[in-house]
């Protein structure tokens, strides 16, 4: 059981678009991962708390509202404070290319554009999480 990768799919902020989050959640499940979906309107604090409680290996952040520049640093800082920077954080949604560099410097491992095949995300996660 212990080698199953556990993922938290989270919707930070007030954004209500969760088609992508739900499709990814289902795709990762079918790839054999254990997936928890937070639902909408999660604060950075709630997301980090859920991630720690559920003891996940990966957090997938989905955002289309443009609020990532504020919310993602908050999440990364809280993870750091909780000494859980080992959790692999990835992101997807509508995140302009210009912002990618900054977000990656914060420790976000990958930012997936719309149109990314789920298999590519699965491969990425399996590579990052050595179990």
């Amino acid at each position: 059981m212990d080698n199953i990768i556990k993922v938290l799919i989270a919707k930070p902020g007030l954004d209500g678009h969760d088609r992508g989050a739900k499709v990814i959640a289902r795709g990762l499940k079918e790839a054999g991962m254990e997936v928890v979906y937070t639902g909408l309107r999660q604060t950075p604090e709630q997301i980090v708390r859920s991630a720690i409680q559920e003891d996940v290996d990966v957090i997938g952040l989905s955002i289309l509202s443009g609020a990532h520049s504020y919310l993602f640093p908050e999440i990364m800082n809280r993870l750091k404070k909780a000494d859980r920077s080992d959790v692999v954080v990835i992101a997807g949604g509508i995140i302009p290319e210009d912002d990618h560099k900054k977000l990656k410097e914060l420790g976000i491992k990958a930012i997936f554009q719309p149109g990314t095949p789920i298999s590519k995300i699965v491969d990425f996660i399996e590579n990052e999480v050595q179990k």
Partner: peptide
């Protein structure tokens, strides 16, 4: 923007980072 759509003022804590965005 989303705070307006969900009935929050721009200074509400959950509105941070969302003001004027969408």
């Amino acid at each position: 923007d989303l705070p307006t759509q969900i009935g929050y003022d721009s200074d509400y804590p959950l509105a941070r980072g969302e003001v004027g965005k969408v």
